[in-house]
Amino acid sequence: MSRPVFFDKGKKVSTFFEQLVNGLTVGSFYALVALGYSMVYGVMKLINFAHGDLFALGAYLGYSLLTGATGKITASMGLWGGIGFTALLVALSVALAGVLVERIAYRPVYPSGRLSLVVSALGMAIFIQNAIMAIWGSRPRAFPASVVPSLRFSLFGIPVTLLQVTILGISFALMLIIWLIVEKSNFGAAVRASALDRETATLLGIDVRKVIFFVFALGPGLGGVAGLMNGLYYRAISFNMGWNYGLKAFTATILGGIGNIPGAMLGGLILGVVESLLAGYVSGAWKDVFVFILLIAVLIFRPTGLLGEKTAEKV
């Protein structure tokens, strides 16, 4: 039905780059959420289905902080200061929520194995999502324009917003920091050791409980901030927004190779770009069908994802 419209070549190229930037923005949100999934998975071998909903919780907490009774924050600290302070509060409270989720829903179930964990994770996800609905209502909430920085400009001919640049910048910075912590620091070494083999790590004197605390604080904390950033960027939040981001981020995690930090980032960005190119050049209606077909195709040829290591079966 839509007939092709021809433009001059330059225009087409810049549209392509525009779509690329669009995809990177979506992808950086997927990547931020995927990072939390992947970190938790790496250590716990657990798909934290509640992660997407903790992301939504972050968005709602941020909304309440920025608009509610404490909405004075932006007034006293300026817009960016207020957002920064809110982000910090959101990170801390969602991190706390993450740790609580682990204590309540996972720790007692851990001895019963992974399948039970999947169910308790699903239970937790359903609980958080509906608790958000019970507290904030079922209608979507919108961040008022007054708390959202807005500036539009053109970068190499591609229209971008200041927020887009900021979000991309912050996402990459956060991913880099996490990557540095996990790959380069001593504590990161402990995390990686626990991910490889918890029993041996314990024998080596690593406090695995501390590591678990750390990943369940950092992953969801990061997810919470991502939720806030998401709310600010798109202005609208809804109680069930976690499912969609959760599912896509999980897809991204697997695409990149689960438990692999750079893999999660790569998976998220690729997924975002692929989605955007599909929606931009193929069909919006069939987009997700192709996304999943692509994922399956990748897994047929690389059964442990793009960056996942092919582990030889230990016999």
Binding site: M1, S2, Q19, N22, L278, A279, S283, G284, K287
Partner: peptide, 18 residues
């Protein structure tokens, strides 16, 4: 133009650019 977007998603920039 006649196409669909995916409900519950938040980023439609690719669709609107198209």
């Amino acid at each position: 133009y006649f196409d669909a977007i995916t409900p519950k998603e938040k980023d439609f920039s690719a669709a609107v650019t198209k």
